[in-house]
Amino acid sequence: MDVFMKGLSKAKEGVVAAAEKTKQGVAEAAGKTKEGVLYVGSKTKEGVVHGVATVAEKTKEQVTNVGGAVVTGVTAVAQKTVEGAGSIAAATGFVKKDQLGKNEEGAPQEGILEDMPVDPDNEAYEMPSEEGYQDYEPEA
């Protein structure tokens, strides 16, 4: 019985440690998101679009440190934060509304985080759909 109880105690310690790591990862992701939003706020009209992409990228980098179902929630929060940063930029006159959601080359930025393969159960990952990809044929 002692062996059984000791095993359960060790398992509990492992769960607590994993929860603490997840909590730490979420806190880091939130900190990076805040950094990115402050970065966007300090940019001029020309830099705002690039700044919004930076927020998304920093958040995406930190999301990889967070495991399990938390990833889905962090990704949703990050996307809403990026959308909010863009709205703030438009409201303050840093950028025109028609410039939001495009990178410096004018290509749409939507789907940055949505296409990231995420499995809350950590069982399997699927690649994003290939609808947006084109076949590449090298020139002879």
Rank of each mutant, 00 (worst) to 15 (best):
K34F: 08
V74Y: 11
K97N: 06
S129Y: 09
I112K: 03
E35L: 13
V66W: 10
I88P: 02
K58A: 12
A29W: 13
A11H: 01
E130V: 15
K34E: 01
E13K: 09
V70M: 15
T92R: 10
V55S: 02
A29M: 11
E83F: 05
K34P: 00
A107S: 14
A91N: 06
T22S: 11
I88H: 01
E105K: 02
G7T: 14
E137Q: 10
E35T: 13
E57L: 11
E114V: 12
E104W: 11
K43M: 12
K23G: 03
E126D: 12
K58S: 08
Y39E: 03
G7F: 05
F4N: 01
L113I: 06
L38S: 05
E61F: 05
T54P: 01
N103F: 10
G93H: 08
K21D: 01
T59V: 08
V55H: 01
G93V: 12
S42L: 12
A89I: 08
T22F: 12
T59E: 00
D98M: 06
P138C: 09
L113Y: 14
G47R: 15
S129L: 06
A90I: 01
F4K: 01
G14N: 05
V37D: 00
I88F: 02
E61K: 15
E61W: 10
A30T: 07
P138N: 05
V15Q: 00
V48Y: 14
E110A: 04
A53R: 15
P117S: 06
M5F: 06
D121V: 04
K97M: 05
L100K: 08
I112V: 11
K58Q: 15
P138K: 06
A56G: 09
A90W: 12
Q99D: 05
E126P: 08
Q134L: 05
G86L: 05
S9K: 11
T33R: 00
Q62L: 07
Q134R: 09
V63M: 11
G7Q: 01
T64G: 06
T44H: 01
G93M: 02
K97I: 13
T75E: 02
P117E: 02
E139R: 13
E114Q: 15
A19C: 02
E83H: 14
T44M: 11
V49S: 10
I88A: 04
S129D: 06
V118N: 13
Q24T: 09
E131Y: 05
T44A: 03
T44K: 01
E123I: 13
T72C: 05
V82R: 14
V16N: 07
Y136L: 07
V66T: 03
D135L: 10
V26T: 01
E131N: 07
A85G: 05
K34W: 08
K96T: 05
Q99W: 10
G106Y: 07
E137V: 08
L38T: 07
E13D: 10
E123G: 11
D121T: 10
E28V: 10
M5T: 01
V3Y: 03
G67R: 14
V52T: 02
A53I: 14
I88Q: 06
K58E: 02
A29E: 00
A19G: 02
Y39K: 03
K80F: 08
K45E: 00
E137I: 03
T59S: 06
T64P: 01
T81H: 06
G101Y: 03
E126N: 11
E35S: 12
M1A: 00
E83M: 05
G25P: 02
E130L: 14
Q62W: 09
G36R: 11
G36K: 15
V118Y: 14
Q24A: 01
Q109R: 09
S42Q: 07
G51K: 10
A124Y: 13
D2M: 06
E110W: 04
E139D: 04
Q99K: 07
N65I: 11
K80S: 13
E114N: 12
A27F: 07
K23F: 09
N65C: 11
E130N: 14
Y136F: 13
V66Q: 02
I88V: 14
K45T: 12
T64Q: 06
A53V: 06
G106W: 14
F94M: 03
G132A: 06
T64F: 13
E20C: 08
E126Q: 01
V26F: 15
A17L: 09
V26M: 15
I112Y: 10
E61V: 10
A69H: 12
M5W: 10
A124M: 05
A76T: 12
G25R: 07
K58F: 05
V74T: 05
Q79I: 12
A29F: 14
P138Q: 05
V37A: 09
M116G: 04
D119P: 14
V77M: 13
V37R: 00
T64S: 15
K12I: 02
V15D: 00
L113Q: 07
Q134D: 13
T59N: 00
E35H: 03
Q62A: 08
A69M: 02
A19P: 00
V48R: 00
K45V: 06
K45M: 07
V52F: 02
T44D: 00
Y39G: 07
K60D: 00
Q62E: 03
H50G: 02
G25Q: 15
A29Y: 08
M1F: 00
E28G: 04
G132R: 15
L38E: 03
P120C: 05
P120K: 09
Q79F: 08
A56I: 12
A78P: 02
T33S: 04
E105Y: 12
G86T: 10
V52S: 03
V37P: 00
A69Y: 04
K32W: 13
E126K: 09
K32Q: 03
E130M: 06
V71D: 01
E126T: 07
V3A: 04
A124R: 15
E137K: 06
P128A: 11
G51R: 12
T54Y: 10
D115C: 07
A140G: 09
A85Y: 14
N65D: 03
K43R: 13
E57I: 12
M5G: 01
Y125L: 08
E105D: 13
E105C: 03
D98C: 14
S9C: 15
V37Y: 15
E126I: 03
E46N: 15
G84A: 15
Q79V: 08
D121M: 08
A27E: 02
L38N: 04
S87D: 04
Y125V: 11
V118S: 09
L38M: 14
G86V: 12
E28Q: 13
D2W: 06
K34H: 04
P108R: 12
A56F: 11
P108E: 05
P138F: 04
D135N: 12
E130Y: 08
A56Y: 15
K6A: 13
A78I: 15
T75P: 01
Y125K: 06
A11I: 15
A11T: 06
D135I: 14
K10F: 07
E139A: 01
E105W: 01
P128Q: 05
V49N: 02
V52I: 07
G36S: 14
E137A: 12
L113D: 11
Q99R: 08
E20T: 12
Q79S: 07
F4A: 01
V71N: 02
A91M: 12
D121S: 13
D135C: 10
D135S: 02
M127L: 13
